[in-house]
Write a protein that binds this DNA or RNA. Structure first.
Length: 410
RNA sequence: GGGAGUGUUCCCGAGUGGCCAAAGGGGGCAGACUGUAAAUCUGUUGUCAGUGACUUCGAUGGUCCGAAUCCAUCCGCUCCCA
């Protein structure tokens, strides 16, 4: 007999909260259901946080359930206050639409949308034309402000004496309405989401019960956090994106390759399909087995998100660079515009700024002074060092610190 | 609507007329050590030229030889009362 997808999700440590554990497990075991996960198009690409949700969809779809990927074109106009300590800026409509389009492209890589095996909807379609007064009477009526305020998402804002606008306060109501709408129109019985979505999901199940007296269910997944509780997928440069235009496959690979020991097992469990026994094996061996585990993680994810070729290339590049074989076709490359050169050469500081390894000349100066810059494996000793145009004809690799490599061409 | 606070560099947070590019912590970056890990230690962390100059302390305008610091107006946020 086929394994219950609920058990599978639970084994991998994905499940955080369930409205009713037994009932949901039972339901998923014997019925093919329709469920939805919402994605707010607040950025022009999905990031690793979303990836977790997509893996869940994948698992569910594999088990025969029908996913609805709901693009929050409507809710996004309002902005989810959950987990945000700042007030959200209000995004222009055009930007939201453009982002939603990009999301679709990326999602198709993971989910099979053919023949109605999965749906992609945009809640702008039903939220934008709501009549305010009707909405208040039919939906708003069922929400208790007292109760809403006790939700974790709002409490944080209140306790820390931060602002919460009326607009944001309504986000929960809108999301609740989404669920109700999908329940009515598509027979959608479950909503999934990150654990920060718990109260928003409950808003939906309760609305369905109050309006129609029927049961719907919700389940949340553990957020992808590091062992110190920080949200994963953030770097100084910003989030780790799934769009190769924003985060190259090599950078993506390196992000996972460089992850903390303490987080590897968890990531393998949550984000990949690597069998649990193998993960346990890595953990048992400890020590440098972590490096194998990290490589496996990085490779698997790059393959899933990008392609097998990208994964191979990133792996090869990574190995070559870190083993000292300082040449590779696949490493990040920047082309230096000719006009940056004066009299056929360029100073090291100007070069670093020009190829964006340093944001300012002061920063570049510091890097060189502190011995953090190597060109073709040779330390740049002086800030007065400069390079002739001919130097760029051959391999010209700048190494910044231990982990950033950049090939420069002209 | 009335009253009380508050707004500082990436973040938190000191500073309350010149010695302030601004303490301290966090974070970042680099160096040492390592396993492309963690922990630890060291340096560094506005910009541009290197004993200097320039821009910055919510915004604008003022006082003063001189303002993050004083005054005025405005804007944002918080709390209390209505």
């Amino acid at each position: 007999m086929e394994k219950n997808v609920f058990d599978l999700l639970e084994e991998r440590g994905l499940i955080a909260q369930v409205t009713d554990r037994e009932i949901v497990r039972d339901l998923l075991g014997k019925e093919k259901i329709t469920f939805y996960i919402g994605f707010d198009p607040t950025a022009d690409s999905l990031h690793v946080g979303h990836f977790l949700q997509m893996m869940v969809m994948k698992h569910m779809q594999a088990a025969g359930h029908r996913p609805i990927a709901l693009i929050g074109g409507g809710t996004c106009m309002v902005g989810d206050p959950s987990g945000k300590s700042d007030m959200r800026r209000v995004m222009p409509k055009e930007e939201i639409d453009a982002n939603a389009e990009k999301f679709k492209t990326t999602m198709r890589k993971f989910i099979d949308f053919s023949d109605g095996k999965a749906l992609m909807l945009n809640n702008a379609d039903w939220l934008l034309n709501l009549n305010y007064v009707d909405f208040l009477r039919e939906v708003g009526f069922h929400f208790s402000v007292n109760k809403m305020l006790s939700a974790e998402a709002f409490k944080v804002r209140m306790d820390r004496e931060l602002g919460l606008s009326f607009t944001e306060f309504n986000y929960m109501v809108m999301q609740g309405f989404d669920f109700y709408h999908l329940f009515k129109e598509f027979g959608c019985k479950m909503q999934f989401g990150g654990n920060d979505q718990w109260s928003n999901i409950l808003a939906g199940t309760e609305l369905i019960r109050k309006k129609d007296g029927k049961d719907a269910f919700g389940m949340t997944f553990n957020l992808l956090t590091t062992s110190d509780g920080v949200k994963m997928g953030k770097t100084v440069k910003g989030a780790v994106w799934l769009d190769p235009e924003k985060t190259s496959p090599y950078e993506f690979f390196q992000y996972w390759r460089n992850i903390n020991d303490a987080d590897v097992a968890n990531c393998l469990k949550l984000l990949t399909l690597v069998p649990l026994e193998e993960i346990a094996e890595y953990e048992k061996r400890g020590g440098s087995a972590y490096n194998e585990a990290k490589e496996r993680l990085a490779y698997t994810l790059t393959e899933l998100v990008h392609s097998k070729e990208d994964a191979e290339l990133a792996l090869k590049t990574s190995r070559e660079l870190f083993s000292g074989a300082a040449h590779s076709e696949s490493m990040p490359t920047t082309q230096l515009p000719c006009e940056k050169l004066t009299d056929g050469k360029i100073n090291i500081l100007d070069l670093l700024v020009a190829v964006k390894l340093a944001p300012s000349k002061s920063e570049a100066r510091r890097l060189v002074v502190q011995g953090g810059i190597l060109v073709n494996e040779e330390k740049v000793e002086s800030i007065d060092a400069s390079f002739e145009q001919s130097a760029f004809k051959d391999t010209f690799i700048i190494k910044k610190g231990k982990k950033s490599f950049l090939k420069v061409t002209i």
